[in-house]
Design a protein around this nucleic acid. Structure first.
Lengths: 244, 244
DNA sequence: AAGTGGTCTAGACCACTCT
DNA sequence: GAGTGGTCTAGACCACTTG
């Protein structure tokens, strides 16, 4: 018989919000890994000594916040990590078949993080981080050029071994090799033109207009675990926003 | 004593979804104009012969869908129309003080709608529509150039009178003069370069890179009531997206 | 003080999934 | 058939806004 886990709502906070926070903490702590099932609402309600409807409200909150997914008749599951295939959503290349671009690692170095990268990753300036340069191709033609910074004690497993065997998606690799699950990402879109070196890699003329997508990726605990800059032909860029 | 308004859920549809649809129809029909209060959940629940909690679920649905806003202790209100000040959200000009750019109407004509515009507005190709060309300025400096198409029987009141008195925002004008309330908008973003005439209006060199935002605006009933193309300096463009 | 939406309870029953 | 989440009920009480 499990003892009651009573939660004490902060003053002004509702009980279901407090319950959601408690469950979120258990998820973040890794008690239930991404993709696995958590106990049924019946069980959880009994465990915390609250009515079923109250626990449902808490689980609805966690669903809205993107921590869990519910499936009728099956159960409630910790939301699996993002797979990172979403970068192509900003560009419309060639056939538009929506397939994942192939990946080619151009370089891999452990370097002191420049100020801007350090700020983005939330680490001290000058701390060493892993920098990947990566080219992405569709039908053997270069389409995206990426500059990826990863904090270093955490991503040490990626500093070794042959990157040729990594496959086309990085985020599943982060999970397998480093135990890092990407839960949320923020993309910031801007515009610029290609430096000579960048233009050469993308097989475009120097000075060609490009779209620049700066991404920060976060894990379940809200720590920034990736700072990435992606460049692509501005003429292939497109994006749609709905306003309400 | 108001008679019961019983709703019949479609097979496979929940009762609260059917209630939400019924209320949405009354909102779209104009029974409660934008900004006005609708009856309390108590009243509505009684009126439809359902439990309070069920009516709450229906109202939650309408809230998510953007048709109503609820305010603790005050009541439930039909969501007021968009004010259209949101175009500046795509650009970062000068001081970044976030103020609304001034508006200058460059031209106003009733013309047959080109095929693409007609498709966007959902009217027959070649039907006449109202075209506005409009320049927007911050601190007396041009920043955005707009090409706006409006379907014509509906917007006839804007074909007359001096546009100089219209003010800086069009959407409030749509509501006052034409009874059109903008409920939702979809913006599609791309990059291009300025034609000579466009460059001249924006005081930029011809061929200068520009961001192009194509907007479709919709009223409560879901009809497209505006097709707009906005051009601005690509170097001032920025936008942030959160992915979960 | 009256009226509104927000929280919480304790139950019943239904729909879906898996074995 | 057992277990899950989804719907619906009927009520009590609380928190907020307004006259």
């Amino acid at each position: 018989m499990e003892p009651l886990r009573l939660v004490q709502p902060e003053p002004g906070q509702s009980r279901y919000a407090a319950l959601a926070a408690a469950l979120r903490a258990r998820i973040v702590a890794g008690e239930w890994p991404p993709g696995s099932a958590i106990p049924s609402e019946q069980t959880l309600a009994g465990e915390h000594g609250v009515a079923l409807g109250t626990m449902r409200r808490a689980l609805e909150l966690l669903t809205e916040q993107g921590f869990i997914e519910r499936s009728h008749g099956r159960g409630t599951f910790v939301k699996p990590a993002l797979n990172g295939a979403s970068m192509a959503r900003f560009f419309r290349f060639g056939d538009g078949s929506g397939q994942v671009p192939a990946s080619r690692i151009l370089s891999r170095d452990a370097l002191p993080a420049p100020a801007e990268v350090a700020r983005s990753l939330g680490c001290g300036p000058g701390e060493t981080a892993l920098r990947l340069r990566r080219l992405r191709l569709l039908a053997q033609r270069p389409c995206l050029l990426e500059d990826i910074w990863l904090p270093l004690p955490l991503f040490a497993p990626l500093a070794e071994g042959d990157p040729a065997g990594w496959g086309d998606l990085l985020y599943p690799l982060f999970a397998q090799r480093c135990g890092v699950h990407v839960h949320r990402a923020v993309d910031s879109i801007g515009f610029g033109s290609l430096a000579a070196e960048q233009a050469h890699a993308l097989e475009l003329p120097p000075g060609h207009p490009c779209a620049r997508v700066q991404r920060q990726a976060f894990d379940l605990a809200g720590r920034c675990i990736e700072s990435r800059t992606t460049l692509g032909d501005a003429n292939a860029f497109h994006y749609t926003v709905s306003i309400t």
